[in-house]
């Protein structure tokens, strides 16, 4: 039996959609028994949501005032404690999971696999390296604890309809005080979330200004898409950092990805490899983005975006 503990990411009382994808990954480990751990200040609602994911055997709820907002240094010792008796500990490869899971792995002296894209056996996993330009198969020694982050773009969310039992757990651990949360500035928007959207419209350096970037927003709103951006567009301040797509931004897998005025650097392409359909709009017919695009349209984006909107 492989006993897998999944660390739940959540915010504002909502379970992150990445958790159900971690469950899918965990369920592909042979003979898996899946537990979700919720660390929260008052996590009843989040635990309920976790318990309703199919395939989950139980949910452990650890309520403590210090657990929200989540800080890796505060959560890691608690995760390590709950990990006792588990063969694997999984978390999403989001900024939350990437911050937390290596700290957990070090505390447990476990093998740590980042960005699992497929499970080959209980010890064997495939993961991308070199910005996705190579895939490695890695194997941990049998019997060793394994901590992993799950590349969420590689998995579909597990279905709803489960009814795992929820247990409250008290851990007698004094949270460290050397790390303190100050603030988070999250742009609230009514647009679909970049990470889970089925359609994404992304803009690059070619947009040239914040004002022009509104063209991307306009098209996105017309088709109900989330907005993305290349690093160059974020660096130039046309779009906020959380919209960056790529090796060091978000790795996404929408049904439709429209790249506008983006050249298609490998660091960008690695973020969209799993998109179902890619559309590229670029005035340079030689731009590398056309190598991966299902539909390419060569021309000036400032003329083409209005044209597209007219045809919708």
């Amino acid at each position: 039996m492989n006993r897998i503990l999944i660390v739940a990411e959540h915010a504002g009382g909502m379970l992150n959609a990445a958790v159900a994808k971690c469950v899918s990954c965990a369920a592909s480990v042979p003979d898996a028994e899946i537990t979700i751990a919720v660390f929260a200040a008052d996590g009843a609602a989040v635990a309920q949501a976790a318990a309703s994911i199919m395939g989950v055997a139980r949910v452990l709820l650890v309520d403590h005032a210090a657990n929200e907002p989540a800080l890796a240094a505060v959560l890691a010792p608690q995760v390590a404690r709950l990990a006792e008796g588990h063969s694997h500990v999984f978390g999403p490869s989001t900024t939350f999971g990437k911050d937390l899971m290596p700290r957990v792995a070090a505390l447990l002296d476990a093998a740590h696999v980042s960005d699992v894209m497929s499970v080959e056996s209980a010890q064997r996993f495939r993961r991308p390296v070199y910005a996705g330009n190579a895939i490695v198969t890695v194997e941990a020694a049998a019997g060793e604890p394994i901590v992993a982050t799950v590349r969420v773009a590689s998995y579909q969310p597990a279905a709803q309809g489960g009814s795992a039992k929820i247990e409250s757990v008290k851990l007698d651990l004094a949270p460290p005080t050397h790390t303190r949360f100050v603030s988070v500035s999250a742009a609230r928007s009514d647009r679909p979330d970049l990470q889970t959207a089925s359609r994404v419209v992304s803009g690059g350096r070619a947009l040239g200004s914040v004002e022009n970037f509104a063209l991307i927003q306009g098209l996105a709103d017309r088709i109900g898409a989330a907005i993305g951006a290349s690093r160059a567009a974020v660096d130039a301040g046309y779009a906020p950092n959380e919209l960056q797509v790529g090796q060091t931004g978000k790795i996404i897998a929408p049904e439709l990805y429209i790249a506008i005025g983006i050249s298609g650097a490998i660091q960008h392409l690695t973020g969209i490899k799993d998109a179902r359909t890619i559309v590229a709009i670029n005035k340079d017919a030689e731009a590398p983005i056309f190598e991966v695009a299902d539909y390419g349209l060569v021309g000036d984006l400032f003329a083409l975006i209005p044209e597209i909107e007219k045809n919708l």
Binding site: A110, A111, H112, V113, R124, P128, V129, G132, N133, A134, I135, V136, T137, V138, E139, A140, A141, E144, K273, I278, A285, F290, E291, V292, A293, D294, Y295, G296, L297, V298
Partner: peptide
């Protein structure tokens, strides 16, 4: 801690059409 069993190139996307 991890044995690397092999490196593979990633699956290539098919080049599509220019409209």
């Amino acid at each position: 801690r991890l044995k690397i069993l092999k490196y593979e190139p990633p699956q290539q996307r098919q080049k599509g059409v220019i409209v």
